[in-house]
Amino acid sequence: MQKTEEMATVLEQQALGSNIFDLKLKAPQIAKLAKAGQFVSVYPNRADKLLPRPISLCGFDPKEGSLRLVYRVTGEHTGTEEFSRLQAGDTIRLLGPLGNGFTVEPGKKAILVGGGIGVPPMLELAKQIKAQQLCEQTIVMGYRDANTFLLDEFEQVATTVVSSDDGAVGTKGTAIDAILANHVTGDVIYACGPKPMLRALRDYARAKGMRCFVSMEERMACGIGACLACVCQSTHEDGHSNVKNKRVCADGPVFDAEEIEL
C-alpha cells in the first residue's frame, strides 16, 4: 500500500454541531492515492503530543488535491482539540493514505451503516458507489442525538434512514433498530462505528446470510503496521505474526466481520 508524508494546508474548517469538526485540507499527494475507508495519521503540532491521530477520510478529491476529515474532539487538551483550532492557511503534517479501505462487491445490494464518529467514512463510500454505479445502496446512520452531522449529504446520495440513541430523530435506538423499522434489505453490509454496533450487525448479517464488512478502531502508535499496538483478534492465524492478531492499521481497518473476533 503506497503512502506518503505530506504537509497539508488548511483550506477551511467549520463546526458541525457540538464537538464535531469538518476540516478540508490541501494534500494533493495523499488525495491522489486515497480510497474510501482509508485513514490518515494526523500529527499534532504540540511537541508533547507524540502520537499521530488516526482520522478516517470523509472525502477526497484527486482533481482538487483535497481531503476532508470529519472528526470528534475527544476532550480538553487533546490532539483533536488542537486540530479544531486550525484555520485556513495553517499547516498540519499527515501520513497517508493508510489502511486497506472498503472493497465493494459490484452488483450486490449494499447497506451502508455508520454509527457515531463512524459516520464520516461512509460518506465517501456512498459517493463512490453512486458515481461508479457499483450497486444499489441504502444508507443507515446511527446518531447519538439531534446532531445529525452529514445527514443532508447522505440524503443527496441515496435513500437514508436514521436512528438516534435518544429518539430525537428517526428510529429511537440503534442502527439495527432503524434497519428493522424501515425494512431495509440488502446483500452486503459495510459498516463503521462502535464495537457493539458492529457486533450486532455481524450477528444480523449471519442470521440473514449476508456478508458484513466492518471498519475497526484501536489505539495506534506508528499507524503503518510496524509497532503492533493496534491489533484485533482474528479467527485465523494472521499473516504477520503467525498468531491470531490482525493489525487494524495495516491489515484493516476494514475486515470481513467473520475474520475477526468482535
Binding site: 511537541a47 484501536e218 489505539r219 503492533l228 499496538a229 493496534c230 491489533v231 498468531v243
Partner: peptide, 22 residues
C-alpha cells in the same frame, strides 16, 4: 516460536512520552 502479545489497548500517550505493553 510465535508470541501473541498482550490484550489491547497496548499503547497510551503521556506528556512527551508514551507507554507500551505490546
Amino acid at each position: 516460536h510465535p508470541w501473541a502479545g498482550n490484550p489491547t489497548p497496548r499503547v497510551a500517550e503521556t506528556k512527551s512520552g508514551m507507554l507500551n505493553a505490546i
